[in-house]
Design a protein around this nucleic acid. Sequence first.
DNA 1: GCCGTTTTCGGCCCGACTGTTTTCAGTCG
Length: 575
Amino acid sequence: MPVHNEDIAVIFEEMADLLEIENANPFRVRAYRNAARTVRGLGRELSDMISTGYDLTSLPGIGKDLSAKIIEILSSGHARALDKLHKEVPASLEDLLKIPGLGPKKVRVLFQELHIKTLRQLEKAASKGLLRNLPGFGIKTEQQILENIAAQRSTEKRFLYSVARRYAEPLVAHLKAIAGVNEVVVAGSYRRGRETVGDLDILVTARADSPVMQGFIEYDEVGDVVSKGKTRATVFLRNGLQVDMRVVEPHSYGAALYYFTGSKAHNIQVRRLAQKRGLKINEYGVFRNEKRIAGKTEDSVFRTVGLPFIPPELREARGEIEAAQNNSLPDLIGLDDLQGDLHVHTRASDGNAGIEEMALAAKACGLRYIAITDHTRNLGIAHGLDPEQLQQQIDEIDRLNEKLRGITILKSSEVDILEDGRLDLPNSILSQLDLVVAAVHSRFHLSRSKQTNRIIRAMESKYFTMLAHPSGRLLLERDAYDVDMLRIIEVAGERGCYLELNSQPLRLDLNDSYCKLAKEQGVLISINSDSHSPIQFDYLQGGINQARRGWLEKKDVLNSASLPQLQKLNKVTMG
DNA sequence: GCCGTTTTCGGCCCGACTGTTTTCAGTCG
């Protein structure tokens, strides 16, 4: 049973949780959490790194001990240290930590005093009123625990970025309209462009007498008010989305924006840099002793630690600070850099508009070319095309290209990759297409090796151009199928194929880490809308957000090429 | 448990809010 980086990260996180409940040295706990993050963020599998003789202690946060533990886990599948901890602290206590308001100290008390190990036991004890007399607990705590157990059951924890935006934008407008309010900006993971967000962090600058705090908690959409102070409040909207608002003075705006944009891991790294320079960074500014030396803008904060501005999408402690120090930050791609869209559907399969309508909509968005990629016959549910129907479409595209100006339509297809890795169209018709987009739409539960080989076999077709939505995941709905994505990226590099970054809000597939890895391997990414209607070209912005999080520059993106440039590339024939 | 242009020992990011503890610990972000 191969051990993946994720397995190791999970073990380290479990160790951290249990050690925390055991009241271990907090810095030791942090060391495990740091190591888990490092392991998760690696581009390569640790098992490969070991076999090529890589010294793990050169990784950040991995020393002699954790390196030995990684090697142990890789060879045996488990860590004796964790097994030993389990004898003292039951694993189920981790579930209790997930209840808001319960941290390691309280969980420890629950376990020691009442032998509570599971959520069910906790709920029972709380409803019997057994918690209120424990040290550090009271009636309110007991009540809150009951409410939070119920809330956790009923609500979805994260929201799609696109959904969060629908709530964020009107709320920002509401706050801006309150007297005395200056700036209102959504920071946090939302500003970093993450594909899903757990909550909204809203930063406000306002005059001291502004009623913004009151105006916030009285907002129409607010369901529950969790806490409210002079500078900070937390609410839940009626849809379950948590919103934190912070109010700061204008001279702290940049420092606060920086601070609340995170990520936490990134902020810690930068604060450590500040510390070395005898500076302290908090949400109010950058301080030397008691004196504020920066904080009005984010730029000013970065300058005090000798760094250039780092775009929010990069602030994940994945090497951006080192890159900033070496002046090698990427020049991130923007929406304007896209010249075309290589994944577009029409009503011939499951879209809702004709070819011409889609082409004109793309042109209106500033694009110069699109590829029409309807499904193939194997995908019956989407009315996939058979070779004859595709031939008719090809003829229609030829006629339209004669007529249309300012936009070129490329002939293509989103071809199903069958279970054995064959493509769902004969070569006789594939050879007539300008490019071939291929995708897995069935048999998601094959074993890792079968799924990987299936896709690699498809890539070996001479007509294969690009793998669409490479992992098959649907955010918050369906996990990625089990596939060796590192291998897929390698093979794409060897065969001169491309990978898609699908911009549908529910997909955003490829994810940011794999985008970065593809870039490092020289594999170009195509940022496509997968539009099924003329308004869906807007989705490209979401793809751009994701691409930026994956460190992609214009040169890393296939469809930032002009049409003549695209024609010169491998695998695009433009018959 | 990690780490080193103050250090191989002694540090390790920082502050707001809540509830209960009447002076502060725990939790959260």
